[in-house]
């Protein structure tokens, strides 16, 4: 009994120590509030942001950008991925350019998009869509390419109807890798959106943190960092949950 309790408590030891140190060093006057504030102050700041509705506004701004941009990017990515896999012509003409642009990290496109589209919503949606487009297109391409000829031959031998081929073969074979691509795209879209908001935005989690930094409000920044991580985690887990539900036949 004792040993299992120890096992349970062990992972809490290091975080506990960090928290205790944090408490200890901020209880004296060694640090100014511009460098480190007590944990309670961060919690207060969180409550304040929550009560004033400020936090909700930032969240709404960030998440609506994310969803809209991701929707556009992943939709285009899905379509383009299928085309790239199915059409030799598209592959010959657009494949090399696609591969070349893919080498450039999304974040490097930020200044270019700002110059082209200005600092309003346009460039944020564009960068989020771009970040989502490439992983989804690539995963879709690989998924469609990965449909084994052997399975299609089996389908032909049993004279399955096209509808049946779609639902019994093509979708089950392609959905798992495409979902993985969507998850990757969503995570990347979130990362690049935070960066874009840090650069230029009127609201959003990134902008909240950037303002906090400029005003030396470390409590606001800490709330922002924690929220950024939480949202990223929740998005990732959400898609993983969908993956598990939809892909129950797969081992692992």
């Amino acid at each position: 009994m004792r040993s299992t309790l120890q096992q349970r408590l062990l992972p809490l030891l290091v975080p506990g120590l960090i928290l205790a140190t944090w408490f200890a060093v901020t209880s004296g006057d060694d640090f100014t509030a511009q460098v480190l504030v007590p944990p309670a102050a961060v919690l207060d700041s969180f409550n304040e942001l929550l009560a004033s509705g400020e936090l909700a506004d930032h969240l709404r701004a960030s998440l609506s950008r994310l969803l809209l941009g991701f929707g556009i990017g992943s939709g285009l990515g899905l379509g383009f991925g299928i085309l790239l896999a199915r059409s030799a012509l598209v592959n010959a003409f657009a494949g090399p350019f696609f591969q070349a642009v893919r080498q450039v990290p999304s974040i490097a496109f930020l200044p270019m998009l700002i110059l082209l589209l200005g600092v309003d919503e346009g460039f944020k949606l564009a960068i989020v869509a771009k970040a989502a487009f490439f992983p989804v297109a690539l995963a879709t391409h690989d998924a469609v390419k990965g449909i084994s000829k052997g399975w299609l031959e089996v389908a032909a031998i049993y004279r399955l109807s096209p509808l049946r081929v779609l639902f019994r073969l093509i979708l089950p074979a392609t959905v798992p890798p495409v979902l993985t691509g969507l998850r990757l795209g969503l995570t990347r879209a979130w990362i690049v959106l935070v960066a874009a908001e840090l650069m230029a935005a009127e609201n959003g989690i990134g902008q909240m943190m950037e303002m906090g930094r400029q005003m030396f409000r470390i409590d606001t920044v800490m709330v922002g960092v924690a929220l950024t991580g939480l949202i990223g985690f929740a998005l990732d887990q959400g898609v993983r949950l969908a993956e598990r539900r939809l892909v129950r036949w797969k081992a692992v």
Binding site: V35, W190, V194, M209, R213, G224, V225, G229, G232
Partner: peptide, 18 residues
Amino acid sequence: QAFRQVPPLGWLPLVGLW
């Protein structure tokens, strides 16, 4: 595992302050 959830650039404002 918890720290990993924050994207690297998400730390930027905090590190910038420090």
